[in-house]
Amino acid sequence: MLPASPRNGHRSDGPVILLEHIHKTYHAGEVEVHALRGVSLEVEAGDFVAIMGASGSGKSTLMNLLGCLDHPTKGTYRLNGLDVSGLTKDERADIRNRYVGFVFQGFNLLPRTSALENVEVPLLYSGVPRKERDRRASEVLAMLGLGDRLLSMPNQLSGGQQQRVAIARSLINRPAIVLADEPTGNLDSRTSIEVMEVFQRLNDEQRITMLLVTHEQDIAHYAKRIIVIKDGRIQSDSPMTARRDARKEFASLPPELEDEE
């Protein structure tokens, strides 16, 4: 099981994420696209943030910056108290490896590679020996209810199962934050609830800090806090009232054959 917070290398004082006046400008030929225009944001450890907004408002751009896949044009970003806005490409790779977990809309698993090995990929780049890789990956997969599918290939798994493998991969290095960009975008409503149940459980039981981009109002209602972005700026930032509980909803769903196994 993952240890409870404070997480590995995580300073328990201060916010996990601290954005100050972040700008991101893309140069598409002659045109300048101001994808983010001064975003400031604080996220405490154990928070669960839903990010919403119209298409092209800058949500994915923000997630890429938060995940150190990209660097801001202007402004500072402190992750875990560490200023990561001016890091080199390799340093950002190391930060992603240690502190960030990604969950994508399209799952992004390596094809023809078993669930176990997919989950182990981040550990390859942090030099964890094989035995420990296997042990940790099968633990996390078991925690997500895939203990009996360790050697299944992605094309042998349902969408919900594939996304759970991807979640397991995002958790394997005990990250400070997990970033999910439209994780339920490719899933039906039942499987979406299943995935949200996993996120809520991880957030509640292990205080994993979650940030989630979604277009769906009802998915956002599983979070604790909702941020709306418009034209590269934060339009609103409010705590979630009437939060949904995925576990209860899932239990009350009509019993149905869960997946085509």
């Binding site: 390596l110 094809p111 780049y125």
Partner: peptide, 16 residues
């Protein structure tokens, strides 16, 4: 290309 993207996202350096 996508595999490379995945590996980089989860922490592979260019050198890797």
């Amino acid at each position: 290309t996508r595999e490379i993207g995945i590996r980089m996202a989860v922490g592979a350096r260019s050198g890797h």
